[in-house]
Every structure is written in C-alpha cells, then in structure tokens.
Design a protein around this nucleic acid. Structure first.
Lengths: 355, 355
DNA sequence: CTGAAAGCGCTTACAG
DNA sequence: CTGAAAGCGCTTACAG
C-alpha cells in the first residue's frame, strides 16, 4: 500500500488544479474504505452509514475527485446526456441551414425548454444542428451510444431522419406529428386551431377582405396553418402566398400580396418572423397597421415584440412543449418498453397592437 | 464456441434494426480472428493483412457492429468530441441569453466554421450555450471528460469562464483576446483596423459629420471598435451612443443619435444587426440612405444582406476564424505541452449600397 | 502480421 | 452496512 500524501501536499494541490485526475481507488484509500463504498456515496445509495459517508465526502473534496464518465457508462450503459437534433433542410436561398437555425428565435426557445426540464435530472443536452447532407454523421453519433435518447426537431416533410432514428431503436421524441405514421412519441401544438383563432379574431375586428402568408407547404405546420385558416373562412375565397418562415421571405410575400390584392384589410401570417417582414413591407407601401390592414402572426416569439406596432399573434408554448418532449423522452429511457404517445398543446390568441 | 447464426437469420436482422448491439468479440468470432485484429481493422492499423481486413470488414457489416464509445474512451482517454461553449451574459432586457444566441447570425457562422474544420478529423462538436448562472454545470461537464477540448466563445469582459476553463487544464481556445492575461490560445480579428477602414471609407465618401453606434463597452470588441473609429478621426469630435449588438438596440440608438445630432451624415455601427435596426429608424425619420446618411456596419453577416439598401460593412471572416480555433485546439489536444498562441485575422471593407 | 493477456475506472450482484 | 470480485467492451504493449 502506497503511503497517503500529507494533507495540503503538492500532489493534492495538483489534483485540484487539473493535474492527472485521481481515481476512485485513491479516494477509497484516502477515506480508509473500499472502492465500492465510495461508489455508493457518489451515487447516493441510502444504505451507507452517515459517518462513513461524511468521511468519504471529505476525501472526495480533498482529492478533487471527479468520476470518469467513460468508465461509468461502460457499466451503467447510460451516458446521462440526450441529443437535441435540429434538422433543417438546405433551401435554395442565400443562407445555410445553420444561418436559419441561429437566426430564428424558435430554436432558442426549444433549447431553453429542454435544458430546463433536463437540468433537475442532471442530464446534459447536446445540441446537434444538421441538414440532410449530414444525416449519416448524426446517425453514427447516435448509434455509438453517446446519448441515451434524442429530441428531434424536424419540420420538413421529406425529412428521413425521424424514421432513421426510430429504426435505430434509440429512445426518441419528435417535435411534431410525423407525416407518415411511424411509431414514435411526439409533441405538437394544435396548428389548425391556432389558425382558426387568427381568422376569428380578424373577423371580430370587422375585417372581411382577408388573406394569408403561409409557411412552406412542404412543412406540415405550414400546410396545417393554411388549411385551418381557410377552413375557418370556408365561405370566402382567401388569397394566400407561400412564404418561407424567414423575415425576408415575409417581406417579399407581402409585396406580392399587396400588388395582387391591394384591398386586403386583414392578414394572417404563419409565423412572427415573416410577420415582422410583412409589417415593414406594408408600411413601406403606405399601409397603416392596424387601421388599413390588421395583422396576426403565429408563435409569440421574441420577433412579435420586435414588431412595430407590437404584433398580435397566436401563442405557441414552445418552451413548455420542449420541456414536455424532454419528460416524455426521460420516461422512454427509463422504461424502454413503453408505447409511443403524443401530447398536443393548445394555442392561444395574444392581442397586441397590430389588430 | 457458440454456433454462428446463418446469414440473414433473425438475429442478424435484429442487430441491424437496433436490437442489442453486437460486441467486438462477436465480430471476431464471425470473422474467425481475434478481437485484437478486429480492433486493428477498425482503427485502420496498417499492419493488418489485406485479406483478413476484408473478412473482418464483411463481418462488421454483417453483424451491424458499432464500437462502444465508452469502452473505447476508457482506454484511449479520448472522447473524439469537443465542446463549443457559447457564453453569453444575461442582460437586463426582455430576452434570455438563449434568445440572443439563437437570434444572432454570428453564432451560426461560428458553428459552421468549427463543424467544417472538425469533420475531416471525425470529431464531434457539442454545442453548449450558457450564461453565468450556468458556469458550474459547464465546468462539471468539462471536468467529467466528456470532451477532449473546448472552443470558448466569450465576449463579456467580466466573464470568469475562460479563466475557469484554463485552470481546469483542459485544452482550450478562446474566441478573442482575454481581457486579463491568461495563458490560453485565442483567435481574433483586428478590431481597431476594422473600425479604421470604416472611418476612412466614410471620409472618402465625403462625409464629415461622423458618428458611431458602439457595441456594449464592457465587451472588448465593442470598446475596440469604438476606440479604433475615434483614433482614425482623432482630429474630430465623434458623437457615440452605446448599443447592445441587437437589432432593436440599434434602432433605439439611432433614434437617440438623430435627436441629439440631426445633422449626422456618416455613421459607423459596430455590428450589422444594429445597423439593420439603425437603417430602419433613420428611414422612418425621413433620412435617405446613403444620400443623407452613409452607413457602415461590421461583420458582413447575413444581416447585412437583409438590409435595404444592402449594407456596406467590415467583413470579419468568422467561419475561417472558427475553423482556425478548431485547428489550434486539435493541435493542443495532440500535443498537450504546446504553448498558447494567438492568430489575428484582417478585416476587409465590403462596399454595398448604404454608402 | 496476429493473438493472449493485462488493464482502463467504474458499478453491482453476492456474501457476510 | 460493507467489501472482494466479477465484468462492462474496448486498446495496446508484449511475445511469437
């Protein structure tokens, strides 16, 4: 048995300052117990005697011990982290998928919600942005067991990643109902109801010449919001222009819309970012908001507050939805047998100054 | 010895579809070689006989084998992933640090650059957004050995994370010169030179009543761009307003500036996002750009192209800078002894329509 | 070029 | 309540 270095010795200091990490055996030796006991203390096993626990904790502090995660997960088969995979298709515009991800407040809200829900469980969130050229990498990462499960943010209809992930057999939760039915849990907001709330509100405001700027129609949420809006106005013919969920896209769409339908007096824009652009374009073209045109967005993201006038919008509780995704994922990880489930959140109208 | 299941058997299919993962021993058995040989094939050891290599690769494919990363890193002491820690202070505005991160194109460019540089080395990037309330978590994550090194994006002067990370002894590269001297490699752009290019360009355009909207002055890049601009115009008195690097902040700052100095004819805005807001505010106030006021931004991010007119700006090669950070980090990981180094990139004037 | 064996640092039945 | 021992799935000197 090697002699334990005296307290405050050089060796101890080095450990605290990032020298070679001490091992559990060294902690055990320092505490005068077995390695198994140290392990139990670290993992909070209730069986450990209070005094011994105390001694061990002191030894841990003194040595600056940190468990080796590789060794731990080799036996537990848990990494204690989950991936947040943000899958955005590459689009034929100037901007990369990464630009879109890091430019849309939606993803920040998702990250915030997921992080908040995971923290109490001491689970790390690994954010992995990806486009389709990258799927292979992501799948490999997941297969290698770096994470215990995956939160998958995927909106694009043709996206094959959800199916690939599910076939991997790794616990997963998706951010919206998959377009083709695959056995996976998902969390969604009632898109059509949201669109209906927007339509009804515009009607209540006395607007009759309604129009909409939709999201991309190959994205289910884009399609559903358009459908829902139209369904609520089944009696009328509703002009619509397809946008791309970006600010610049909203601006361009609004210009086209006003050119074709200069008399529009009520507009539903399928997300706040596009609404911000649309507001600007309409104001440039001399429209007063809301006097000439009342505008309703969708999301209630920070973009709604960047608008002038402040944007009336349909609130989507994105943070809560992401938190719920995390909870469901945790449940799947804890009990791999569980059947998939879906959770649907209700949207709500938030009235501000643009209507 | 257990009999090997016939090809195409149920067991094999299950492995491919996410059943319990086969182990290296099973691959070895299937290939009729030792586990060591399988390991050598997987790690590309040159010594393996070509025929045997072939047989092993076939066995790997047939069994759907994927190495267990925990077992591997337990012995190699490498995780083959590095962290991208984005440290943003919480500010007293409406928005969380996550909102700011996922709303500023800068971070998307950083991520793109780092990912691109790491991919050929087969190193994963783990993105970890954090504010100061979170430092403890991040430090713990890094200590546990989840990653081999860290790219640290930190701009705030009081941010203690860089020092903490360096004291951890983990290989690290920081995104800008640390305010207090700590022994760490960093990559930066010549901020003062960038500001000078902006000043000289405005002068060349015949503008004489210059002003600037600076970044936060507790962020070195904010301070340096202001200093550099003033230094280049030492002969004149240059009004400046402190902004916060957000679009909304730029808008507010421009309004204040024009209220106090209605005759300004040349404006340097310390980043493109603020410039976008400033442009809008000035146009609202009846200024024509560039006729009445010429405007120069900083970054050459996607925001510059969202501006109308398109924004003249100082290009900062963010993607390349992030790639360089990654390369330097890799070098530190490969040779832990190496002394810190710094790499400084040159900014460049990009002339568009706002000047 | 290949294999047998040791060992990486943990957790967890199993005894006691 | 505690410890000795087995074992998680790899890599890598060391022999041959």
């Amino acid at each position: 048995m090697r002699a334990r270095p005296p307290a405050g010795s050089r060796t101890e200091l080095m450990n605290k300052r990032g020298g070679p990490h001490p091992t559990m055996d060294q902690v055990a030796e320092a505490a005068g117990v077995s390695r198994a006991t140290v392990s139990r203390v670290i993992n909070g096993a209730p069986s450990v005697d209070a005094k011994i626990r105390e001694v061990v904790q002191r030894a841990i502090a003194a040595t600056g011990y940190v468990p080796n995660v590789a060794a731990r997960s080799l036996v537990t088969r848990r990494s204690n982290s989950v991936a947040l995979v943000i899958s955005e298709p590459d689009r034929p515009d100037n901007h990369s998928f990464l630009n879109r991800i890091f430019t849309d407040p939606y993803f920040g809200r998702i990250t915030a919600g997921a992080t908040g829900a995971l923290r109490p469980h001491d689970i790390h969130l690994v954010v992995i942005p990806t486009d389709s050229s990258d799927h292979h990498q992501v799948v490999r990462y997941l297969r290698q067991g770096h994470v215990d499960g995956v939160l998958l943010i995927s909106s694009h209809e043709q996206d094959t990643l959800p199916r690939q992930v599910v076939e991997l057999g790794i616990p997963a939760v998706v951010s919206a109902r998959p377009t083709s039915p695959i056995p996976v849990s998902f969390v969604d907001v009632d898109q059509r109801l949201g669109a209906r709330l927007a339509a009804e509100h515009l009607l209540e405001r006395g607007r009759r010449r309604l129009a909409t700027i939709s999201g991309p129609l190959d994205i289910p949420s884009g399609l559903e919001r358009l459908d829902g809006f139209r369904a609520a106005l089944a009696f009328a013919d509703v002009p619509s222009i397809e946008g791309d969920f970006t600010r610049a896209g909203g601006e361009a769409a609004a210009r086209r819309l006003l050119a074709e339908h200069p008399d529009v007096d009520g507009l539903f824009v399928a997300n706040d970012l596009m609404a911000e652009g649309a507001l600007r374009a309409m104001q440039d073209l001399g429209r007063r908001i809301p006097e000439d045109v009342a505008v309703v967005g969708f999301d209630d993201s920070s973009a709604a507050l960047d608008c002038r006038p402040l944007l009336t919008t349909i609130r989507q509780p994105v943070e809560e939805m992401a938190a719920e995704m995390a909870e469901v994922l945790l449940a799947h990880i804890a009990a791999p047998g569980r059947l998939p489930r879906s959770v649907t959140f209700q949207p709500a109208l938030v009235i501000r100054d643009s209507t």
